[in-house]
Amino acid sequence: MSEEVLTRASELFSSLFGELERVIVGQREALEHMVITILCNGHALVESNPGLGKTLTISTLARLMELKFSRIQCTPDLMPSDITGTYILEEEDGRKQFRFEKGPVFANIVLADEINRASPKTQSALLEAMQERHVTVGRETFPLERPFFVLATQNPIEMEGTFPLPEAQLDRFLLKIQMDYPSPEEEMAIIDRYTTNVVPDVKRVMGREELLMLQRLTRDVPISNELKQRVVKIITATRRSIPEIAYGASPRASIGLILAAKARAFIHGRSFVSREDVDAMAYPVLRHRIILTFEAERKGLTSDMVISNILKSV
Rank of each mutant, 00 (worst) to 15 (best):
S2P: 10
S2L: 01
L6H: 05
L6A: 03
S14C: 04
G18S: 14
R22W: 01
I24N: 04
Q27R: 04
A30K: 06
H33Y: 07
T37R: 07
L39A: 09
C40G: 02
G42M: 02
G42D: 03
E47A: 05
T55R: 06
I72A: 10
C74S: 15
P80N: 11
R95I: 15
F100A: 06
A107Q: 00
N108M: 15
N108S: 01
V110Y: 09
L111T: 09
D113R: 07
A118P: 14
S119V: 14
S119E: 01
P120R: 06
A125P: 05
L127S: 14
E128A: 14
Q131G: 12
I157L: 14
E158M: 03
P166M: 06
D171W: 03
L174W: 09
L175H: 11
Q178I: 13
E185T: 06
E186D: 14
A189Q: 12
I191L: 10
T195A: 13
T196F: 06
K203Q: 11
V205M: 04
E210F: 07
M213D: 13
Q215P: 09
L217M: 09
R230G: 03
A237S: 11
L257P: 00
A261E: 13
A263E: 02
R264A: 05
H268T: 03
R270H: 11
S271W: 10
V273P: 08
D277G: 00
M281N: 05
M281W: 03
Y283T: 13
R289A: 01
I290E: 00
I291H: 06
E295F: 00
E295P: 12
R298A: 08
G300K: 14
K312Y: 05
S313A: 13
V314F: 10
